[in-house]
Design a protein around this nucleic acid. Structure first.
Length: 934
RNA sequence: GCCCGAAUGGUGGAAUCGGUAGACACGCAGGACUUAAAAUCCUGUGGCCAUUGCGGCUGUGUGGGUUCAAGUCCCACUUCGGGUACCA
């Protein structure tokens, strides 16, 4: 290489956009200068932007994870430039099943794996240039964090929910009420309705009283039907189960009656529902939560049992159909089954119960066949005094309503199928409906065969029936919720220990001063020989006084329910969050995360927050004001086509001539669907000797959209993208891919366009080999290009339309390139506007413009668009005839409509299209279009 | 079954209040530069017809409707995606 060439190449390096150097330089600058650390500042308005913190899995981040983080980072930086004091923290949801399962397999302590994974996540995130305040990091598995999870649990144990004032109250208030009036006048959320006098209460033993209180505590332990997963060896909450299998791992789940800790989330059902109204969440997410909460208005009705004193209570939303009731159905688990079954029916009932018990939840769902058994007993219809048989069937759920229903086969599809199967009578009570082939389920029509309800429409009949129920004291109006209490125990190791010990078999909470109760070491992460959870292996797992501690641990959602509060005041050792921090930061203004948490975390967090709100710990009733669900990033797989029984691969457009098998190929050795043949040969020894049939000298791969997974070889690592193109290209490209909320496949094709844009931007600042930025006054065209951008980008950021703002930047830079603009007055505002999207290159160029060494563009001021540059003197009208655009016409922007009409009609072109006819009508839309109707 | 969302070139997508469909990119084709490649730059690029010029027709999943004007609003349907489910 001669000297000249060497010199030229050196210059090339200096003036070229060297993203690796720039990324490295500014990432360490931001860190050293604590640019992203925030504190309470009463002189500036706050803004809280939160990402759903990740579970640090062993696989590391793939290119889909940062999508939401980049969006929230852009928004944070934008708000910051606008003068807000922005809280933008990050942490780790560190307790979880995978680390524990890995521990079981390898003996490696989950803490070690977790620590390692966190380090990897952090390294990956750092490379993308996020503006997180890492001083505020939280990890749910750290004692100084889970201390407050345990603390909150103690508060829930020591409170009950008063339904009259719709608020959590100290349990002492309830005890006081019991002492004075018994249950008289008490309206509290509970597992089971109770009734006793003050005298009866005071005659009870301490243990009995504590048992009763357990019925009211917000965190309570009780025998309940739970989702038991034998494979995972633990119980699961409803949101952790879907279609009868566990969400994690897809293992079968069965129903079991077990004594478990639960949180009385159901007490807050109405408030959780009402609270949705004032939240800026998507309609679909609100809808999902509404369905999950599942409010249904109806009535509880008591049915007498023939030859028995007790009355059985059922829940129905259709009390109007009472005259159509022809039988009753009990859930197999109902306590009434044992009470009602006659001796004669006993063998049949027992057989049915056994068969039902054996089936897993999944089998029960899959099995659509109608099954059931007659109990031998009869109930009395309170409306007409008729005796009706009581059946037992698993289509009635023990956990909803009262576990018993009145069956109206004419107007309920399930009752109908049951009645047909067992030949039970079907009595229609709506005029004119045909129930010979199917039930009539619609809530409309006029009542018939229904005594005092005859002639009323369904709506009126429901009201009248409820009235009847109340006046005749055969029941009450009742609102039922689908939302269940959250099962809070897990028979696992890697979770928060409960701050609970047992004395005389009664659970007691630890003294708050003893928190945190640290997770002990265990010899193995498996259950004990006696079937106890892994904590049963911990040595000395007891209080100082020798009382045994709880062996269960808390579920995954425990630690994630209040983490947003802890970020406000992460190092506080005396309270969860100080009054000062809470009253300043209040709640999350913008929350970005996946839609998979709609019925889990987002319900639990809202519940947890409302509870703390009742206690006066937090000042906002709802934790997340605005919420954006970023779409899922799917994988885009590539295929090569191997000719059968050979090691020859044929390019996609030639493959039809052969019999081929598609084989997944690693997307990282494919660029723009063209296979890197050398890399392919090295990729797998099997392909070392592979031969290829090419088209135009290239091997073109097929592709398909699939889930991003290792087995499909379509996982793209953000590190690789950053290494190849730089962090700013990754950030811009992820946004450019499409609308934030839409699911889309990751396709690296196209990333070059974004990278080219950054190079073009870079080149605006250079002439030959030197920085060349002038201080001249910009031309009107240059001003216009800039202010168009300022307006567009602000609008787009506020509407989370980041893909269109990236294209606005491209348009602006293209225009400035055409104009050969190198004016500081244009380029500097451009950099500030671009900063939220591409913080590295904007910081670099901003400094090259001469800003002080210790300053950062992150602290610059956002520029507002000035309309005076956007005014147009001349606008182009589209001239259309009968709705078809024929040509354009430039006219002064301020020309009044009538003048426009005259000018257009007088023009030669218009005469041509009019063909001598007189227009019937002319519509002028100012500054846009003229439509001439002939 | 019920609820929600979506469907636009070869590809990702744009069209903010019913007003010029296809912005911005990718890809592709042609060209410039180069020994060559890469990089870069220029031109073209929904389809069909015509290209000797102007151009013309058609086009946003399907069918209908409202309107001077519909990707956008209404009705019916198809397909795909997501949520949820014996919830009485």
């Amino acid at each position: 290489m001669d000297k000249l060439t060497y010199y030229l190449q050196l210059i090339q390096v200096i003036m070229e956009y060297n993203f690796r150097e720039i990324d490295r330089k500014w990432q360490s600058f931001w860190k050293e200068h604590h640019i992203y650390n925030v504190d309470i500042d009463r002189h500036r308005p706050k803004y809280y932007v939160l990402d759903m913190f990740p579970y640090p899995s062993g696989a590391g981040l793939h290119v889909g994870h940062p999508l939401g983080y980049i969006a929230s980072d852009i928004y944070s930086r934008f708000k910051r430039l606008q003068g807000f004091n922005v809280l933008h923290p990050m942490g780790y949801d560190a307790y979880g099943l995978p680390a524990e399962q890995y521990a079981i397999q390898t003996g490696q302590h989950p803490a070690i794996t977790t620590e390692k994974n966190i380090a990897r996540y952090r390294e990956q995130m750092d490379k993308i240039g996020f503006s997180y305040d890492w001083n505020r990091e939280v990890r749910t598995c750290e004692p100084n964090y889970y201390k407050w999870t345990q603390w909150a649990f103690i508060q829930m144990f020591n409170h009950y929910y008063d339904l009259r004032i719709q608020k959590a109250q100290p349990i002492e208030k309830l005890i006081h009420a019991f002492e004075i009036n018994g249950t008289q006048g008490v309206e509290a959320a509970c597992s089971e309705e109770m009734s006793f006098t003050a005298k009866e209460w005071s005659n009870k033993s301490v243990a009995e009283q504590r048992d009763i209180l357990m019925n009211y505590r917000i965190a309570y332990k009780a025998d309940t039907m739970v989702n038991w997963c034998p494979t995972l060896g633990t119980v699961l909450a409803n949101d952790e189960v879907s279609e009868g299998v566990s969400i994690r791992g897809g293992h079968p789940v069965e129903q079991r009656n077990m004594s478990q800790w639960s949180l009385r989330v159901s007490a807050y059902a109405q408030r959780l529902l009402d609270g949705l109204a004032k939240l800026a969440w998507s309609d679909s997410l609100k809808e999902t939560q509404k369905n999950w909460i599942g409010r249904s208005e109806g009535a509880e009705m008591q049915f007498s049992i023939a030859n028995m004193d007790e009355k059985m209570t059922i829940f129905t939303t259709r009390p109007d159909t009472i005259f159509g009731v022809t039988f009753m159905v009990l859930a197999p688990e109902s306590e009434w089954v044992a009470k009602l079954t006659t001796d004669e029916q006993q063998p049949e009932v027992t057989a049915y119960l056994d068969a039902t018990k054996k089936k897993t939840e999944r089998e029960r769902i899959a099995d659509k066949r109608v099954s059931g058994v007659f109990s031998g007993a009869y109930a009395v219809n309170p409306a007409n005094g008729q005796n009706i048989p009581i059946w037992i069937s698993d289509y009635v759920l023990a956990g909803y309503g009262t576990g018993a229903i009145m069956a109206v086969p004419a107007h309920d599809a399930r009752d109908y199928a049951f009645a047909k199967n067992f030949n039970l009578p079907i009595i229609p009570v709506i005029e004119g409906c045909d129930v010979s082939h199917e039930s009539f389920d619609a809530k409309e029509g006029i009542l018939t065969n229904s005594g005092f309800l005859n002639g009323l429409n369904v709506k009126e009949a429901i009201a009248k029936a409820k009235e009847y129920i109340i006046t005749n004291q055969i029941g009450r109006v009742k609102i039922n919720f689908r939302l269940r209490d959250a099962i809070f125990s897990r028979q696992r190791y890697w979770g928060e220990p409960f701050p609970i010990y047992y004395k005389d078999r009664q659970p007691y909470t630890l003294d708050e001063a003893k928190l945190p109760l640290k997770l002990p070491e265990v010899s193995s992460y498996l259950p004990t020989e006696h079937g106890e959870p892994p904590l049963g292996r911990a040595a000395n797992w007891q209080t100082e006084d020798g009382f045994p501690l709880e062996l269960n641990t808390m579920p995954g959602f425990a630690g994630s329910s209040a983490y947003y509060l802890r970020y406000m005041d992460p190092h506080n050792d005396t309270v969860l969050v100080s009054k000062e921090a809470d009253e300043y930061w209040r709640n999350v203004d913008l929350y970005i995360g996946g839609t998979e948490h709609a019925t889990g975390h987002l319900i639990y967090s809202r519940f947890w927050n409302k509870f703390l709100f009742d206690l006066g710990i937090v000042c906002e009733d709802e934790p997340f004001q605005k919420l954006i669900n970023q779409g899922m990033i799917q994988g885009r797989s590539n295929f090569v086509y191997r000719i059968k029984d050979s090691n020859i691969f044929v390019s996609i457009n030639l493959k039809d001539a052969y019999e081929t098998t598609p084989i997944h190929v690693d997307v990282n050795i494919v660029h723009n669907d063209i296979l890197d043949i050398e890399a392919f040969k090295k990729w797998n020894p099997e392909y070392k000797t592979a031969e290829f049939i090419l088209e135009d000298g290239k091997y073109i791969c097929g592709w398909a959209v699939e889930k991003m997974s290792k087995s499909m070889y379509n996982v793209v690592n953000p590190d690789d993208i950053v290494e190849k193109y730089g962090a700013d290209t990754l950030r811009l490209y992820e946004m450019f891919l499409g609308p934030l909320e839409q699911s889309k496949p990751w396709d690296t094709n196209g990333i070059d366009g974004v990278h080219r844009f950054l190079k073009k931007l870079w080149n605006l600042f250079w002439k030959e080999d030197t920085m060349a930025v002038s201080d001249e006054t910009p031309t009107l065209e240059e001003w216009k290009a800039l202010h168009k951008l300022l307006k567009k980008v602000k609008y787009d950021i506020e509407n989370f339309s980041f893909n269109t703002s990236v294209s606005a930047f491209m348009i602006c830079v293209n225009e400035l390139t055409t104009l050969k603009c190198n004016k500081r007055a244009i380029l500097e505002p451009l950099l500030i506007t671009l900063n939220p999207f591409a913080p590295h290159i904007s910081e670099e160029l901003w400094h090259r413009l001469g800003h002080k060494d210790d300053e950062s563009i992150c602290n610059a001021t956002w520029l507002e668009a000035d309309e005076k540059y956007l005014q147009e003197d001349v606008v182009t009208y589209a001239i259309s005839f009968n709705g078809k655009v024929r040509y354009q016409l430039s006219l002064p922007a301020d020309m009044p409509n009538d003048k426009v009409e005259i000018t257009v009609l007088e023009s030669d072109q218009a005469q041509k299209w009019l063909e001598g006819k007189t227009p019937k009508k002319v519509i002028v839309v100012p500054k846009k279009i003229v439509n001439i109707v002939i």
